[in-house]
């Protein structure tokens, strides 16, 4: 008797479905364009090469997504990835224990930033903008000129060639599923999302908002570290400026993947797809379109505007 009462038909929300499918649709569109421009790219080797840098971008997008879930924004994640890269290419190779300690410490700093932002009621944009210079400065101190060397084990891991399916696709799937399970399916993940949706209600039910913010920023730090490791494992050497473009890419990836800046509405799977789309559109597609490197950065920006505008238009129809 309990379920039957609820079996009323309700109008199907097409705009909602469109929004959910938008990340997948835009990825399909980019893939189609690539297939049309260069059919040979759609192959095991092609994907392995094109999605080379997609793993660190997917990881950094998930990191940003954690912060956006609790209605904050992290402008320091790009330089942070650069910092992690420099630590990885130097200390983690030469003195692994020191390297590990520094990376763990960096994650704790992230959690502390979450606490600071919550307790002092500071705008996260200001705090993380400041921190971006701190991470950048530290990175330059550690590695003044590009160089260093990635640890062997890391390069082996990133160079893994599984049969049939290219490694980046498996990795992206894994990242998306882990984040989805943790944030969308577990009971504490629900509380974390609720903290973004109606923080007051969560606090009134007796949960700690401070803890929620610290967990989310700590997770952002953790995934930022993963992203830096993956990046250095792929490029094999470090550079203090290597992650600078990642801040905006990560924000764009989250939004493209169906997330909202406020209200705790995010989608980990969508965010990973958004990251893959951006990774493909940002380099491979433009190269296949024979756009000269000088113009690629600007073209990149144009693609971002178009894709995000489409996303906003669809959300508006839904409302």
């Amino acid at each position: 008797m309990t379920v039957d009462a609820a079996q009323t038909s309700r109008p199907f929300n097409y705009a909602r479905m469109l929004r959910t499918l938008l990340p997948a649709l835009s990825l399909a569109l980019v893939l189609l364009a690539i297939a049309w421009l260069n059919p040979r790219a759609i192959s095991y080797l092609g994907f392995t090469l094109m999605l080379n840098l997609a793993i660190p971008i997917a990881l950094v997008t998930i990191a940003q997504m954690f912060v956006i879930t609790v209605n904050e924004l992290d402008l320091s994640i790009g330089p942070f990835v650069g910092f992690v890269g420099c630590v990885t290419a130097t200390w983690l190779t030469e003195t692994p224990l020191l390297g590990l300690a520094v990376l763990l410490g960096a994650i704790l700093v992230y959690a502390a930033l979450g606490a600071l932002i919550h307790l002092r009621n500071l705008p996260s944009i200001v705090v993380t903008l400041g921190m971006s210079f701190v991470w950048q400065g530290l990175a330059i101190l550690i590695l003044p000129t590009p160089g260093g060397k990635a640890p062997e084990w890391l390069m082996t891991m990133m160079g893994f060639k599984p049969p049939f399916v290219p490694f980046p696709i498996i990795a992206a799937l894994l990242i998306g599923l882990v984040a989805h399970f943790g944030l969308m399916r577990t009971s504490y993940g629900t509380i974390l999302r609720g903290a973004g949706g109606n923080g007051q209600a969560i606090a009134r039910a007796g949960w700690s908002l401070l803890r929620a913010k610290m967990v989310m920023f700590g997770l952002a730090g953790l995934f930022g570290v993963f992203s830096g490791l993956a990046l250095i494992g792929t490029t094999s050497s470090g550079d203090a400026n290597i992650g600078n473009g990642y801040t905006l890419l990560s924000i764009a990836g989250v939004i493209l993947g169906g997330g909202e800046f406020v209200g705790g509405r995010v989608s980990p799977i969508g965010a990973v797809i958004g990251a893959l789309t951006l990774a493909l559109a940002a380099s491979s597609l433009l190269t296949f379109m024979h756009i000269p490197p000088d113009w690629q950065v600007a073209a990149n920006g144009a693609i971002l505007i178009i894709v995000l505008a489409a996303r906003v238009l669809i959300s508006r129809r839904e409302a």
Partner: peptide, 16 residues
Amino acid sequence: LSLCPNLTVAENTHVT
């Protein structure tokens, strides 16, 4: 209202 709008009815029950 003290429900979280981004969560489902069941998830909101877990909150309390």
